[in-house]
Design a protein around this nucleic acid. Structure first.
Lengths: 222, 222
DNA sequence: ACGGCCCTCCCCCGTCCGGCGGAGGCGGAT
DNA sequence: ATCCGCCTCCGCCGGACGGGGGAGGGCCGT
């Protein structure tokens, strides 16, 4: 897709912290074959800067004001005919946003505490090739991960402790009577809790509630 | 962990196809800072060769006779005090083994059709750093992927096509009547299929059946 | 031609479930 | 001191569900 100029790699930095941009620029410009051609402090700015400068590689922070790195990545890849390779930069590994960014089409990701050597090699690597270390397999993996994620359910927070207990037991296949025996209350009480769970989850029967629990990843929070 | 010699990176190739080893050796030895110190044609051989030569990087094929690349990776990482970085080499992306290899502790993976430039850069990268492109986040992702796999349920095969349809619809929260309307049969027929599903899955009600479907990863085979 | 499997549908019946409205106690917040 | 949320229970009712048993038709392999 992106064809790097024969002379040097043109890079755009997008990060809301000036210090980070400065540090990245210092590291990258020390290399003769790398050139930082632009910076952006917000996602929106990143989109327009990239559109104007058509760099080879974008180092994109995930957490930025206005438009975050994921949306910016989406917009860049969707609107540009010959989009740059986008490397997502984050402070924490296991950042959930990273997976979404990869899903959005980012070519790689990078921790801010990576040393200078790794940084420049990564930029060169991602610019010259995508058959390696980030083939579509990883993107598919991330996509799958993100697909099972996008249910950061709003209702979980609204459930009371008791209702959570009951839902958890519902999701193991117990009947109301069995749940009652398990948590040491009367069957009528369980019915009340079940009704509350159904109302708060927006489901109409226990089966749908259990499905919602699974889809929301509720069963993994054991 | 691994501390590369200041002079050059010592590499071991493990692949059952001689041609592949030759090709990799040709590419790598063309670089002044890379040195191929050993080869192995089987997983078992790879383990002993690595143990003897203590290289910095191992390029490991996944599919090999006797012991495959995954087990070899496990054994190397488990038995050596200062293990090398292991890069898994595969022909096909989306190779399911790749995820298991990453889970076993491999530092990266590489497609055989990767070009020479990408190959050498990847080797350097993986030898010098792991804060980048394959931090533990990706490994955790691979682990999660592998963890959700090992549920190849025995009963799925025993379900008839119709019963699979019904189970799939059950797991979307539909009632028998709704399922009947959806697949264009009478409610009585659906009841029959549901009963068959319950019997074959060893569950007593639709809720437990849906749980079984989710636990078995049945819902991902859409 | 026959048995076997699958899909289709029927009736009866007992149970479980979910919706309705109501009630008491208890603790924390205002 | 009062209100509000949570937990605990009660009865009533209609509908959905699951078990049991039976039956007809189509397809396939023997």
């Amino acid at each position: 897709m992106t064809s790097p100029r024969a002379d040097s790699l043109r890079i755009v930095l997008a990060d809301d912290e000036r210090m980070v941009r400065t540090a990245l620029r210092a590291i990258l410009t020390a290399e003769p074959d790398l050139e930082v051609v632009g910076e952006a402090a917000t996602g929106a700015e990143a989109v327009s800067v990239v559109r104007d400068l058509t760099p080879d590689v974008v180092l994109m922070d995930v957490r930025m004001p206005e438009i975050d790195g994921i949306r910016a990545t989406e917009q860049i890849l969707a609107t540009l005919p010959d989009p740059p390779r986008i490397v997502v930069v984050t402070t924490f590994e296991n950042d959930a946003y990273v997976y979404e960014a990869l899903r959005a089409g980012a070519s790689g990701f990078l921790l801010k505490r990576a040393d200078a050597d790794a940084l420049v090699q990564a930029v060169r690597l991602v610019a010259h090739s995508d058959t390696l270390l980030f083939p579509s397999a990883v993107r598919a993996l991330a996509a799958e991960h993100a697909r099972s994620r996008p249910t950061p359910p709003p209702w979980v927070a609204k459930l009371t402790a008791r209702e959570r207990d009951v839902l958890r037991l519902m999701a193991t296949g117990l009947t109301n009577a069995e749940i009652a025996g398990r948590i040491g209350v009367g069957p009528a009480t369980v019915k009340t809790h079940v009704a509350a769970v159904l109302a708060k989850t927006g489901t109409r029967d226990r089966t749908q509630a259990v499905i919602a629990a699974y889809e929301a990843g509720f069963m993994k929070e054991s």
